[in-house]
Amino acid sequence: MLRFFHQLGSPKHFYRIAGSWIPWLAAVCGLLMLYGLYQGMVVAPTDYQQGDSYRIMFIHVPSAWMSLFIYVVMAAAGAIGLIWHMKLAEVIAISSAPIGASFTFLALVTGSIWGKPMWGTWWVWDARLTSELILLFLYLGVMALYGAIDDKRTAARATAILAIVGVVNIPIIHYSVEWWNTLHQGPTVTKFGAPSIDIRMLIPLLVMAVAFKLFYLLVVLMRARVEVLERERNARWVRELVEAP
């Protein structure tokens, strides 16, 4: 077990092991998404107030959860890279940023499309929506900063610090609907207490949440492999790999 993790830390073995995981992850993730969509679009009943428009939730809510989750992973990986100078953690951190930005964008856009018929507006500047928009800018800032510095290791350190500072926004997003009154409603699914949602609606929501987590794992591995190749382009194993792919 220990040897496995040690191997995972070496770029060559990481590239190989990640490569062998990718097809499996893709298959499981794809099947889960199809199952979740079937449950959400066909099996789940219509909502008593929102009609069928609530079905946007099966994308919106998992995306919003992922936008927070990926940010925490990115900042934690960045911190590990800073403290222990672990190259792979730097790679994971920077590979996470575009995926996190994608999910934040999806949460914002699908929320907006949901808001128009339900609330009566595409957008309001309440605490929840504003803090989620700041999260998108944080992700874009991390990506821009990494791209602006030529030396990859310096770039990784600078972006890690930006990511760590931005972590303060995460609890603000999460608790915004409780600390202040907002147009956005409070949480439905919480760790404590039974969720106030019908079980047939909850199942697709949770299936999609797991599928999105796997999707993140899949894409972060794919991106990390490219980043590892780029960084190790002068190493012998990469030269051999290029000769005989």
């Binding site: 009943p45 219509t46 909502d47 008593y48 107030q49 929102q50 609530y54 939730m57 339900m118 609330w119 147009l183 409603q185 409070g186 949480p187 439905t188 106030s196 949602i197 019908d198 047939r200 609606m201």
Partner: peptide, 9 residues
């Protein structure tokens, strides 16, 4: 402002 409850009619 919609609430956090989801259920069939």
């Amino acid at each position: 402002k919609h609430d956090e409850k989801y259920m069939p009619p």
